[in-house]
């Protein structure tokens, strides 16, 4: 990492595993679960959050000395809301179908706790470059979980990835289906998202005993 010092690199690496915003800090779960039935939606959601968190962290960090602390929540909300409106309009213009699938969950990025949490905990006390790295790191940590959940739910639920059938054709009985494999439609229902995240947490904490709660 020639470009980044060790401390800066940690800002990006930590949230990916040991300080993951979803499984460890318990932030931003709302939107993480509802839209993960398809991998494509998960990826688009991750990119949206990456944009909002990266840019938002920089903006808040630049303004951190002129925001009166009493009204900082409102200022933060306005900054996020503006960025989210941009994301929403871009999605509507270039990926209309997808923006229908994501429906209100794009709007709910505003109240995604990861964003407010990082603004409060990091951007208000650090310079723009470090805040940017922190935003990118946390958004990537969020993306990792979203993509893992989306991958398993789409693969097991409908036998496709990004809409492309990978396990053969369920009607023609080719590929895996020839051996009597069936899609687990249950994976597409929303409760399974919770259980998949629960299992990810289980695996992660079994591998790293320091994370276990009392």
């Amino acid at each position: 990492m020639g470009l980044l010092s060790k401390k800066d690199a940690a800002l990006i690496k930590d949230p990916l595993a040991d300080n993951n915003p979803i499984t460890i800090q318990v932030l931003g779960i709302c939107s993480a679960l509802a839209i993960t039935a398809e991998l494509e939606a998960s990826i688009v959601m991750s990119i949206s959050v990456l944009f909002v968190l990266g840019v938002g962290n920089v903006v808040i960090s630049l303004m951190r000395n002129i925001i009166p602390s009493k009204i900082r929540i409102i200022v933060q909300l306005i900054v996020v809301a503006t960025l989210v409106i941009i994301v929403d309009l871009v999605l509507k213009a270039f990926a209309y179908e997808l923006s229908k699938t994501l429906s209100v969950f794009v709007g709910l990025i505003i109240t995604n706790c990861i964003i407010m949490g990082r603004f409060e905990a990091f951007a208000l006390g650090n310079g723009p470059w470090r805040s940017f790295l922190d935003g990118i790191g946390n958004a990537l940590g969020y993306a990792v979980i979203l993509i893992i959940v989306g991958f398993f739910r789409e693969l097991l639920g409908s036998g496709t990835l990004l809409g492309i059938p990978v396990l053969g054709d369920p009607i023609e009985k080719t590929g895996l289906y020839g051996f009597g494999y069936e899609n687990n439609g249950f994976m597409l229902l929303s409760p399974m998202a919770l259980i998949v995240v629960g299992i990810i947490i289980w695996v992660q904490r079994s591998r790293n005993k320091d994370l276990i709660e009392d």
Partner: peptide
């Protein structure tokens, strides 16, 4: 509860089961 599931993990799984019930 298995140590690694304690706290957050088991809460997620219970919520999932409750959600199935609510369906």
């Amino acid at each position: 509860v298995p140590p690694a599931l304690r706290g957050l993990g088991i809460t997620f799984i219970i919520t999932g089961l409750m959600a199935i019930g609510f369906m």
